[in-house]
Each structure stands twice: as C-alpha cells, then as structure tokens.
Nucleic acid binder design. Structure first.
Lengths: 137, 137
DNA sequence: CTTGACACCGTGCATATACACACTATCTCT
DNA sequence: AGAGATAGTGTGTATATGCACGGTGTCAAG
C-alpha cells in the first residue's frame, strides 16, 4: 500500500485544479470563469452540433453540458434552438457572447503565453499533446 | 478567435474527466469513487499534517478538503483530531478505511496497469511527469 | 396511422471545487 | 495578563460534474 503518488486520478485532477485556478486569476476579474470561457469558446468552435454530440466530443456528461449551457444562456452569452431536421438542442454564441470572448481573448492569450514562458515552448506543446492523449483513454 | 483548441484549461479538465470516469468504472461498484480513494490514499500517505498543510500540498482549496474529509468521516473511513501542540485538524485513516483501501488496491492497480498497457509504459511515465509538472504551475 | 424502437433531452440527487466571510485558538510582545 | 498578529478552521453560496430516472420527439415497420 504505497504507490498512490503515481495515481493518475490524483495527478490529473491536481493538474486541472492548478491550471484552472491560474487561468481564473486572469479572467475572473472580468466576469467569466476559465471553465465558462472554455465552454463558450468550445461552442463557438463547434456550430450546428447537438448538446449530446458536443458532450461526446468534449468528454462531458451530457447533463453537465445541459446545465452549464443553461447558465451561459441566463447570462445572455449563448442561445439554443432545435435543429432543422430531427430532435435536439443546438447551442450558439450570441453577439454579446462573441463580444465578451473578444474582450477576454487577450487575457486568455496572456495566460497561455505566460504558461508557455514558464514551461518552455517545447514543454508546453508536449503537455498539450499528453493532455489530448489522456482525454481519449 | 481561433486557437481555443490549445486551451490548457479545456484540455486539462477534459483529461481529468476522462481519467476519473475510467477509474470510477473500476471502483464505484465497490462503494468508493476514484476521487475519494485518491483522497483516502493521500491521507494515508501524509500522516500528522493539518488540513491546511495537506490542502497546500495537494493543490486543494482548504475548504474543499474540509468537506471531502467530513464525508470520509461520515463513512467511518477517516477520523481527525487536534495536534499535540498548537491549532489544527489532523486527519487519519481508520482501521475500516485501511481495510477498504486494501480491498480496493487490486482494482486500482488493475486500472493503473490497464492505463499503462493502453498508453505504453513510457507514455504512461511521461504523462505522469507532465501532470506533476502542471500541478506546480 | 398506430406502435414500438430509438435518439434526445431535462431533473433530482449527490459529490467536487473554490471564494468570501466569520470564528477561534496560539503566540508574541509589552 | 492583555492586545494584536498569526494560523487554522468552518459555513454560506455558487459553479462543475456525473448517475439514475423519466419524459418527448422521430422514424421505421406494419
């Protein structure tokens, strides 16, 4: 009973907490949390997909996405509608949401750049690849 | 407005979700979530430290640890007491907690081993190092 | 057109996480 | 011993996350 220091759960969650906390420090003063900007940006990157499809693509539970999306809609940053054909809920970033993304982009870029500087460019890129690989297990 | 795919927040949280979900599948049927086993194991690894010190060491908010610890105590898996000298709350795994850890260890080891097999031993080790590095940003 | 399979969706409940705030115990200085 | 600094704790509130369950719309078979 010893090697819990190698636990992937422990270490991956610890990393996510540290990174989220760090980015939050940049963004929060401007009215959006790092996770929320992450989701809003994700919606912007994936137009015309249903909530279920986006949940699948981003490794969310579908119901988590439902609620996080509700919050963004309450804030007026996103909206959703039914697809032309078939069943579903398709999210979309509103004009207000796009404006906020553009306002926050410099802060997010700064956070990314500071991470790169602290880790070195190569380590940053390697880390990104590792995280992407781990997201698919 | 394009490169959100490189967002560290998005990718680190996505990885943590995937890994947690995976380990949960092994452990949950036996009555403890992956995060809870992770914490219980962490307590076992760090005897005689206060809640604040452990929170600092593991990158938790202190109050998160308070509540998660409360839950483990409710389950009878952990207990806490004041230190000999000074202020504080020191957590400890109970006999029941140790028994449960020992019961779950094979499942956790299997989860780790399956991850290693899927990623390759080298990639697994590299990933662990990356996560540890990211936990310190 | 009905019916049953299937694909989506949302809600109730529980845990995880963090920030702001308030409280309490210790310790140190005078 | 009293007062202020320091360290440690817990609670209120809010978001993030996932599972179990139930509801609703779609579509193919008859």
């Amino acid at each position: 009973m010893d090697d819990f220091t190698q636990c992937m759960v422990t270490n991956s969650r610890m990393a996510a907490r540290a990174i989220t906390r760090r980015y939050d420090a940049y963004l929060r003063p401007h009215g959006l949390s790092a996770t929320q900007l992450s989701l809003l940006g994700g919606i912007h990157l994936m137009p015309d997909v249903t909530v279920s499809e986006m949940a699948e693509a981003r490794g969310f539970d579908r119901t988590t996405l439902t609620r996080n999306l509700d919050k963004l809609e309450q804030m007026g940053l996103a909206t959703s509608h039914a697809p032309e054909r078939g069943n579903g809920r398709i999210a979309e970033v509103t004009a207000k949401g796009i404006a906020l993304i553009e306002e926050l982009l410099p802060l997010w870029r700064q956070a990314q750049a500071d991470m790169q500087a602290e880790l070195s460019r190569d380590t940053f890129d390697d880390s990104l690849n590792v995280l992407r690989r781990l997201s698919k297990v």
